[in-house]
Design a protein around this nucleic acid. Structure first.
Lengths: 260, 260
DNA sequence: CCTGGTTTGTTTATGCCGTAAGGTGCTCGC
DNA sequence: GCGAGCACCTTACGGCATAAACAAACCAGG
């Protein structure tokens, strides 16, 4: 289940997120050191393995030692989230037009989510958060500024793009996770699934003719990287085509608004 | 964090999902009764409160009693997920064109996610699952069939639409959750947040000028329902405009493919 | 230098969680 | 009438977040 922001002291949360004075880095621990360690744990072993004990252990301390610096696990997750968001690139040239820049951003963001897949498990859709979330928004808005879109449409576009990338990255992350955790290759896993599937739903093609048809053809290899496994290839393809559809939609909105 | 599918016996999971013979409903419990109870718990108290003990209690049984019918909590969540997906409408008239139908679907799906917000916390992007997930896909494909789009683009479109609705619903769910858990109204909560915000990030407008500008204006009331609170109104508006952008994108793809 | 309060960490304890293990009694086929 | 198997129970284990109480290290003012 998603991890929610601490309901506790909103002021303290905010001060931590925005690094207001008070979090001095003494000889011992510090918020930053703890957040770093937590991110390492989550990157390596996944969100499920992220426990206060695990983070403490990685720092040679007890779990309780962390509570001097961080009010709760939920707040720690918030800090981790905002922390890694800072890794997103912040500059995209708009010389080639917003479409090129936005596409580049989407690709980078997808890559980011795959580097830190646990981010996808942090409660989606949290409104006000830390500085790096705003930095991300600001980057998107800079890219989209040349479109001249009004703020209402702009908000819709930003939301759609972010959610799309998040979702698409989720599919890929899931494919990777399945491959890793079962120790099978993509193809093996998929094949073993299909076997059970036919046994349990022999009338599949009749019940869901369109779905069956859609699932038939094999996706072509990813251009430039033939090593991408089956399921992931599929997901990447969906990402690419879905993104173009989305960009077309933005373009239509821009055309309607008379910008360019 | 998201709940993952059981890694255990794939055959057993599938048989349960597709209700293969064997799950007779005797005088005592049954898979269906358990799944119902679990959905009720999750609907009322949220995913975090969903424990085997809680479900057992609601049925007047112990937690362990459930394990006769359901191999693990992860499988139970899978069953819950597929169960509620069955609540989605299955028929959309295409007489007025695919755009109208797709928009109606998106609205219904958003409503669905808000009725069962915990669904948003079930591991997104799990590939093969139960019958109702395919039913949902089938509905979307039926709606989109008149476009004549090829299967590659079709997959991208379906993914983009589903992810968009999911994400947009997540924002609204989050707004509602914040309001409920803090006991404040939307406006109060937002106002109290802003106060801390200005204190902690006084240079916000300089650091993030475009974001600041975007956040300035107040959203107009939702047409036909003036009671929708502030934050949610914002989210609904973003949903509506984002959806149109997305639909424009699909339309562009259709036009390019020469269909209609 | 001593002394007392604050800071930083510990250990311990409480009450959750999922679920393995090992009952107990009931029902049914023989 | 008896053994098997089923449905459900209690108990137990290891893990979790975190409250509470305590210890040691630092730093202030005398």
């Amino acid at each position: 289940m998603a991890v929610y922001a601490g309901q506790g002291d909103a002021r303290r949360s905010m001060r931590l997120l925005w690094r207001a004075p008070g979090g001095a880095a003494g000889p011992g621990l510090s918020v930053d050191v703890i957040v770093d360690a937590a991110v390492e744990v989550a990157d390596r072993d996944g969100m499920a393995a992220l426990s206060m004990r695990a983070v403490g252990e990685r720092l040679g301390r007890s779990a309780m030692a962390l509570y001097t610096y961080v009010p709760s696990k939920a707040e720690l997750v918030d800090l981790m989230y905002d922390r890694v968001l800072g890794e997103l690139p912040s500059e995209y040239p708009v010389d080639d037009g917003w479409r090129v820049a936005l596409r580049a951003w989407a690709v980078d963001a997808r890559e980011f989510f795959l580097t830190h897949p646990w981010v996808l498990q942090v409660s989606q859709a949290r409104p006000v958060l830390g500085p790096n979330e705003f930095a991300m928004l600001e980057v998107l808005l800079r890219i989209l500024r040349p479109t001249g879109l009004g703020s209402s449409v702009l908000r819709g576009v930003v939301g759609a793009v972010v959610q799309f990338v998040r979702g698409a990255a989720g599919v890929i992350a899931e494919a990777r996770r399945a491959a890793r955790e079962t120790g099978m290759t993509d193809e093996e896993w998929w094949f073993s699934r299909s076997e059970v599937f036919e046994e349990v739903a022999p009338d599949f093609a009749e019940r869901f003719p369109l779905s069956a048809e859609l699932g038939e053809e094999e996706p072509p290899p990813v251009e430039g990287d033939e090593s991408v496994p089956y399921l992931e290839r599929d997901a990447v393809l969906n990402f690419v085509t879905g993104l173009e559809v989305l960009l077309d939609g933005v373009e239509a909105a821009v055309a309607r608004a008379g910008g360019g």
